[in-house]
Amino acid sequence: MSINSTTKKVDSVTVIGLSGKITIGEECKHLRETIRGQLSEGTKSILLNLGDISYIDSTGIGELVSSFTSVSRQGGQLKLLNLTKKVHDLLQITKLVTVFDIFEDEAKAVKSFGSTQA
């Protein structure tokens, strides 16, 4: 499997750092299970750091959208941090830049969740 994730807590925000690829198969499954795990623990504020993601395919983009939807359904927020140019271009082509809140600075991103979210 070519994806790895690390999780840390910054204030009330869970920052998930992903590295590798988000592509069809095991990689997408890993992302889905990571998000599901966080939601089951009651996490509401998730910041996905995609800085070390080299490659996302259409299935991976779909997985990001599904993650966004499932976090929102639980009353939470999922935002994106540190997109590479390639990944940013993909979100531009698919018009998902209009859907996701995208940040380049972790501190700013964390702050944007506000203090009411847990």
């Binding site: 395919d57 259409s58 299935t59 983009i61 779909g62 997985e63 959208v65 599904s66 966004f68 939807t69 993909l90 082509i93 698919t94 018009k95 998902l96 209009t98 859907v99």
Partner: peptide, 21 residues
């Protein structure tokens, strides 16, 4: 069309769009 408003949040349907891009 995956760019239509009603399809924007669908979990699939973007492969051909990427190929064309």
């Amino acid at each position: 069309d995956p760019l239509d408003k009603e399809n924007l949040m669908k979990p699939a349907g973007r492969g051909i769009l990427l190929i064309q891009a």
